[in-house]
Amino acid sequence: MSSQANETTQKDWSKAKSVLKVRDLRIHYDTPKGAVIAVAGISFNLYEGETLGLVGESGCGKSTTAYGILQLIQPPGHIVGGEIQLDDRNLMGLSEREFRRLRWTKLALIPQGAMNSLNPTMKVHQQIADVITTHEGRQPKEKMRKRILELFKTVGLPARIYDMYPHELSGGMKQRVCIAMGIALNPSVVIADESTSALDVVVQRVVAQTLLKVKEMLGVAMIMIGHDMGLMAQMVDRIAVMYAGKIVEIASVQSLFKEPMHPYSQVLIESIPSLKEKKPLKITEGITHDPRNPPPGCIFQLRCPFVMEKCKTQEPPLRELKPRQEVACHLYEVSETGEVKNVAASA
């Protein structure tokens, strides 16, 4: 599995076709004291067949981004601006009715199954059938049954849970029911929101492997949201690091783990507890500024160890510093020959 995984990660994503384009997406939550800026203008591409990880601490806007793409933001939150394109079709102008048709068929969400994402009063097969009939109309009972059992097989569920209620299932099984629902209508993009957290380590591995297998089989593109860096290393091809509503770095998973460039990515990588070596604990604070009133300039300036004058006034743009490694930081300068220089190191 390992060699195969490496092949896919080494693939040149710039040549691949992008299925989902997000441009300058902005989402605010209104509060009596002003709007909380949850997503502050982020842009990224999701390429055919890839898995993109979206990481960051709680409150950085990673889940809001995902729900924004699905247009499931609940008031007081609302999308303020930006563009979302799915297969060259702009999603922003669509009515709720039109968008409903796209959910599940084109864009599917796999929620955290352990939470209340399944209806406790409906049997497992009814919930999956519900998704299918809503989009494809009523179908012969026997055909539906075959199809659901086929889905069960894909995600590794035993046929005997067909007639069970969610409370009769273990956490790992519930999560796999959620995966089965997510892929029931062959979507082209799947968004997995913390799909494997809140599970035991061994079960988590089984579910994660199921997810990878299913993704491979259907060839869908996937956005994986999470905060477990270990799991990200195992599962994704590229990774986008978010901090306070912005993407600060986006790179291949190998580059990000080996050579994180943004100071926040560096903190994130260093603070991963390892099972291989005992290292001194790296202590960090959480997001320090008021999300209603971010400081001018760089969003990370209050916690950055390398903060400069420039950071307090100018916002660093996301620039491609190395092939397929985009970083939003003033710390690096690109010379005319294309060489990347660390300003702090040379000063």
């Binding site: 380590v201 061994v202 089984v206 492997q209 297998k213 195992q234 099972l275």
Partner: peptide, 20 residues
């Protein structure tokens, strides 16, 4: 259990699929 803890290293992936 120890083998299933996801290693934070993209070059050290789970080497085999396990079944429960």
């Amino acid at each position: 259990l120890v083998d299933s803890v996801p290693q934070p290293d993209p070059d050290d992936k789970w080497d085999k699929d396990i079944e429960l």
